[in-house]
């Protein structure tokens, strides 16, 4: 546990000693808020909720920005050779994996917390259900954690950050588009309704929108945690295989 904390501290400080964390925070808030007030019609709809106007854009932003934050997680270590230092320190590989993952997740946690003015605004303008808003934030955070875990896996696979970014964005994009209405509508026209269900099950949107609409289902939690767990296990397997 102490080792996880030591790795976590180093990684977390490292994000903020470089421009990357600030860039992610600013770009995310700018786009999230921008979309809320334009495509999301936050004011025009007159609805005191953040479900459509705010949260629905998050997976699209995470799909690009989570890989941008996480692409260097292992790629940097492998390119600089610091992986050799980590590998010869008397700590378990899992402490390093958890420490690194938690640091990236924390940057995103801070980013999401910093969107709080929208919550104040919606409470000031109307009477929203704050429980649903909290559930929306949980859904948003879990989606982001999932994309970060996937990025971490690809970051372990390659020492090239650009390759990691492209592949991770692609995989996250597939997970977002598979549950996107416009896409599923086309699929149902061509392949029928049954196909839609199986395709949507790959996607993140199904689980994400359940949470943003306030439905806290165990199956969604299990889905998010199993993708995260699977990606972290995969990361460990890849790192071990690379050394052998």
């Amino acid at each position: 546990m102490r080792n996880i904390l030591t790795i976590f501290k180093r990684e977390f400080v490292s994000y903020f000693s470089r421009p990357i964390a600030y860039a992610i925070i600013v770009v995310f808030i700018l786009f999230a808020k921008g979309m809320t007030f334009t495509f999301g019609s936050f004011i025009a709809s007159g609805d005191a909720s953040l479900n459509y106007s705010f949260f629905s854009f998050h997976p699209w932003l995470f799909m690009l920005l989570a890989p941008a934050l996480g692409m260097g997680m292992w790629a940097d270590e492998q390119r600089n050779g610091t992986i050799e230092l980590l590998g010869t320190f008397p700590i378990s590989p899992w402490s390093i994996i958890f420490g690194k993952y938690l640091a990236a997740v924390s940057v995103w946690f801070i980013t999401l917390v910093l969107t709080f003015p929208i919550v104040i605004a919606v409470n000031w303008l109307g009477h929203p259900d704050n429980g649903i808003i909290l559930s929306g934030y949980i859904g948003s955070f879990l989606t982001c954690c999932t994309f970060l875990a996937i990025t971490m896996f690809f970051s372990a696979c390659t020492r090239d950050q650009v390759v990691c970014l492209i592949v991770s964005v692609l995989v996250c994009f597939v997970m977002v588009i598979c549950g996107f209405d416009g896409f599923t509508l086309q699929v149902s026209r061509i392949l029928g309704r049954e196909a839609v269900e199986s395709i949507a099950s790959i996607g993140v949107i199904d689980h994400f929108s359940a949470l943003t609409s306030g439905a806290f289902r165990l199956q969604d939690l299990v889905w998010f945690l199993s993708i995260i767990g699977g990606s972290l296990l995969g990361t460990s397997a890849i790192l071990t295989a690379k050394r052998a």
């Binding site: 470089r18 600089n80 230092l85 010869t88």
Partner: peptide, 14 residues
């Protein structure tokens, strides 16, 4: 063990 790897890898941002 104390180990100095060949390329003396370090974290450049520290």
């Amino acid at each position: 063990i104390g180990y100095l790897p060949e390329s003396a890898p370090l974290y450049n941002d520290m």
